[in-house]
Write a protein that binds this DNA or RNA. Structure first.
Length: 488
RNA sequence: GACCCUAUCGUCCAGCGGUUAGGACACCGCCCUUUCACGGCGGUAACACGGGUUCGAAUCCCGUUAGGGUCGCCA
């Protein structure tokens, strides 16, 4: 009897009464019928009751990659799902490129995505410091352990770790069991762990920190899968139990290559600047390689938190599709509360210098564009004309409707009809406009289009009656008069 | 080159031995409509190939091909 890895990941246990090897593929795993589900606290190995600790360990490059962000997200989700801790560790063994700005990019990106960490360089914690450049004494201590065990040797001033040259089994929550044959030094050379100048190599410090910080789960990109047997050898030499590993598939660009800095949308900053909402980006990112089933896609973060299943992640790399992320962004914008929309849109509005006066004046404007915009960065442009009489007229829009024969007269007629209204709300305005069109014997569009351009200067925008309402009666009618100068 | 992983519409995700192979984005029609959106309806579009196993394979096995990853005194 074996307990499947996948179920460990979900915090459940399934006894699978089929003997033999662990099935290594998701399909094979799932194919074992006759599962007996048992409750979490019964029959689970003790180690699993330890509280979960996961980490995100970026190096401070000044760039937060979407792949990294997804890795962080998955680690965060897993920790939060299991009442565990999520740790931020900065891997800055290459001290030269260590800048304050680079730290800020990481902090800002994670904060923006809503991924809060429990321990980190800025927060402290029981296993600090949380930046590798300050952990030298710890590495020295662990190196001494390796030396005492005869696991290292010097080579041209560098220190190398001697492989045991035995097969190493990687048990991965996503990938299943994979055996690596380490016997050939030509294909698996002994790794260097320290340079002649005394600085440390990633593999060593990464493993040491994961031991020291008592990480229970290492969730990282699949590009590390082939490094994992080496890491396991290190754990063994240090007398430590390896954590559980979960290697998640990579995110590729449209050419099917690893998403690089040069690819549009490869940086979290890109999404932040363009006015994507963090909930949409998190939603999109978690959908790469994972699905909650039942054809569900639009997910709010709390739903992701309850549905996400590390063991359910698929193995294949996926191509980043900006179109779909864009669509999801519109969906989130549309479905979020007006309060949240305000919170997110305000920085963009302020940055663009829209002089809206008070927040109370801004709110109605935001309300009428919320169902329409796809990017928060579009908001200033969509509401700007509501707060100035100096709004520009788009020549194309003018030519298309205002400049058409009779448009000026129709505008005037509409103006005088509307001026009679005492109740200036969009529903009443709409009725009045349609009534006016009927009496004039023209289609509503003949009034609507010139009026839209008159009031906003353009042919695309929020709902017409809503614009009138927000603008107020006096300003609406004044704009009618002003625009008649442009009309035919 | 060696080793590891992967292979379903253009893209993302379903599929767990018997399905008219499903949903979403994108694209194309139509409807709704004051623009743009939203929404609704419909359409185009996929099991890489070859062998097995099986009464039956997109699903299991092997091979081929293709793609990705790793083999750093980068992280």
């Amino acid at each position: 009897m074996k307990t499947s890895v996948r179920s460990w990941a979900s915090g459940r246990a399934s006894l699978v009464p089929c003997s033999g090897r662990w099935p290594s593929r998701p399909a094979a795993r799932a194919r074992c019928n006759f599962r007996i589900r048992i409750e979490f606290r019964t029959g689970i190995p003790f180690s699993l009751r330890m509280s979960v600790r996961t980490r995100f360990a970026p190096s401070p490059t000044g760039f937060l990659h979407v792949g990294g962000a997804r890795t962080a997200l998955f680690n965060w989700l897993y920790a939060r799902q299991n009442d565990g801790k999520f740790i931020l560790r900065i891997e800055d063994t290459d001290a030269a490129r260590n800048t304050e700005e680079a730290y800020k990019v990481i902090y800002d990106g994670l904060n923006w995505l809503g991924l809060d960490w429990d321990e980190g360089p800025d927060k402290g914690g029981p296993f600090g410091p949380y930046q590798q450049s300050e952990r030298n004494a710890i590495y020295e201590k662990y190196l001494a352990v390796l030396e005492a065990g005869g696991h290292v040797y010097e080579d041209n001033g560098a220190i190398r770790f001697r492989s045991q040259r035995k097969p190493v089994l990687v048990e991965d929550i996503v990938c299943g069991k994979i055996e690596f044959d380490m016997s050939n030094p030509a294909t698996h050379p002994d790794m260097t762990i320290r340079r002649p100048d005394g600085s440390w190599i990633f593999h060593f410090v990464n493993v040491v920190d994961d031991i020291e910080m008592q990480l229970t789960h290492v969730i990282r990109g699949e590009d590390h899968l082939s490094n994992t047997p080496k890491h396991i050898e290190l754990y063994q030499a240090l007398g430590a139990t390896p954590p559980k590993f979960a290697h998640i598939p990579l995110i590729l660009n449209h050419e099917g290559k690893k998403l690089s800095k040069r690819d549009g949308g490869s940086s979290i900053t890109y999404f932040l600047d363009l006015g994507y909402t963090p909930e949409a980006v998190a939603n999109y990112l978690c959908l790469l390689g994972w699905s909650p089933g039942e054809n569900r896609e639009f997910l709010k973060t709390p739903e992701i938190l309850s549905l996400f299943d590390l063991g359910q992640i698929n193995r294949r790399n996926s191509i980043f599709d900006l179109d779909k992320c864009f669509w999801l962004n519109g969906q989130h914008l549309q479905h979020m509360s007006l309060e949240r929309f305000e919170e997110l849109a305000l920085p963009f509005v302020d940055k663009a210098g829209v002089s809206y006066g008070t927040i109370d004046a801004l709110r109605p404007a935001l309300a009428i564009v919320k169902p329409k915009v796809k990017h928060l960065s579009d908001v200033p442009d969509w509401i700007g004309f509501l707060f100035t009489e100096e709004y520009p007229f788009d020549p194309e829009a003018v030519a298309k409707s205002l400049a058409k024969p009779g448009a000026g007269d129709r505008l005037q007629a509409l103006g005088s009809a509307l001026s009679a209204l005492s109740d200036w709300t969009h529903a009443v305005i709409e009725l009045k406009l349609k009534e006016t069109a009927a009496t004039m014997g023209v289609k509503a569009g003949e009034l609507v289009h010139p009026a839209r351009v008159a009031v906003s200067g353009r042919s695309v925008g929020p709902g017409l009656y809503e614009m009138f309402e927000v603008l107020g009666k006096a300003r609406t009618l004044a704009r009618f008069d002003k625009a008649r100068a442009l009309a035919a």
